[in-house]
Simulated scan of single mutants.
Amino acid sequence: MLCAAGADPVIFALEDLHSADDRSRFDGIPVQLGRTLGPSQIGYSPDLGRKLAAADIDLLHLHGIWMATSHLAERWAAVTRRPYVISPHGMLDPWITQRGQAKKAIARLGYEHRSWRRANLFHALTRAEAADIQRETGNDAIAVIPNAVDAHLYDNEGRDSATARIVYLGRIHPKKNIDGLIDAWQILVKQRGPAAPQLTIAGWGDPIHVAALQARIDLVLDSRLSFTGPVYGDAKRALIGSATALALPSHSEGLPMVILESWASGIPVAMSQHCNLPVGFTSGAAIDSGVDAHSIAAALAVLLDESGAARQRRRAAARDLATQCFSPQIVSEQWMAAYHRILERNS
């Protein structure tokens, strides 16, 4: 999006096992990788710091916090006196800040407080996240800009099939409430017997969380419940397009891309309010699942049992949101305006 809008981005990132594969996603945009020293979850990389210091860039945009990359970014901004933007990507949500408090206290004292004070602008994906940022950092220079989805990449025909399918796609992590979703699906199995929907879970995560999920599925012993692992590209789009509904009953989110991708495909969503997309509820593209197994089951039942005409209205609402509120053109215009304002104030 930024290239199309006339910007010249350069990506700085920590090197990991997937760096070679990920590089191809950036379509020729320069990528500078830094080797890490010590635990990967800390992300300490003097190598990346040197590459950042040698780069000739007008503005630095940090994605994510709680890692040593915050220190590198803050030091760059202090030395160059050039603008510095932070996107926490949901990492200041209370559900997140209340976990691992000792490690986060060390990060705050070690580098995050300095980084937050140095930032010219914070980026929030939603108004709820903007409130979290202001509360945690005391900084009220916040731009609310959503993620974008290119609806042209997704099939929006809305295929019906004899077998209903609920799809979960995303990170395998307790905050996603996948156990609650499985509990809800088992309620539907008891209620509907052979007519119960399939539940397909796809995604990636820490090995311990993936192993726990697989162990639970193995105990259920029902072929209608499956875990496919991570899916990408055409396979991901095909899985979303095969769904009767997507489910995301999370305890905590920033702004989930998978919901935007589902709407681009014309697929309605059962999601919790923690997904921070209330426009989905008001438009009819989504239904509130809550986070309790019974409320999730009830929400899924509504989407499964709707008439053909009602389903078509939801599909149309979903597609309209993707094209009218979250299109790359609309979002890139907001980003370029924000970047230009910062650069002009700093000149």
Rank of each mutant, 00 (worst) to 15 (best):
L304D: 05
H173P: 10
Q214A: 07
G205I: 08
G170L: 11
S223H: 08
G308W: 00
G193D: 09
A184D: 09
V220I: 15
S223C: 02
I217R: 08
G229H: 07
S226A: 15
Q134H: 09
I133D: 05
S289I: 08
L304P: 01
A286W: 01
V144K: 11
P9Y: 10
S115I: 07
V291M: 11
C325M: 11
A211D: 15
Q329S: 14
A337W: 00
A184F: 10
D56F: 02
S19W: 10
I11P: 04
Y154C: 04
A238S: 12
I240E: 02
A5M: 10
N139Q: 14
D56G: 02
D218K: 13
P256L: 11
H61K: 10
Y84N: 04
G229F: 04
V220D: 01
N147A: 07
A316W: 00
E253Q: 12
A299D: 07
Y84C: 05
Q32M: 10
A286D: 02
W76E: 06
S161R: 12
E15N: 14
L125I: 09
G308D: 11
S265P: 06
D183E: 12
R135S: 14
A215G: 12
A162C: 09
P328H: 09
P328R: 08
F227C: 03
A53L: 06
R319W: 02
E129P: 03
H274D: 14
A235N: 13
N139I: 03
Q198S: 08
F281K: 01
Q214L: 01
L246K: 03
I296H: 01
I217A: 08
G284T: 08
L199H: 00
Q329N: 12
G233H: 11
L248P: 03
Y339P: 02
I187D: 05
C3N: 12
C275Q: 06
L109M: 11
A107H: 05
E306V: 13
R117H: 14
D27Q: 15
G138F: 09
E261D: 10
A78L: 15
V149S: 10
G158I: 03
N177D: 11
G64V: 04
A196C: 08
A130L: 06
Y111Q: 08
H251S: 12
G308M: 07
S115Y: 07
H340W: 02
V167F: 05
A151D: 09
H61W: 13
M91N: 09
V269R: 04
T126Y: 06
M67L: 11
Q134P: 00
R159D: 01
V302F: 04
I208E: 13
C275N: 14
K51R: 14
A4M: 07
A293N: 06
I187F: 05
A68I: 02
H113K: 15
G266E: 04
P174H: 09
G284L: 04
D218C: 05
H71R: 12
L304F: 07
A238F: 02
P194Q: 04
Q134I: 13
S223G: 11
S226Q: 15
L125W: 03
K236I: 07
A5D: 03
C3Y: 01
A317S: 12
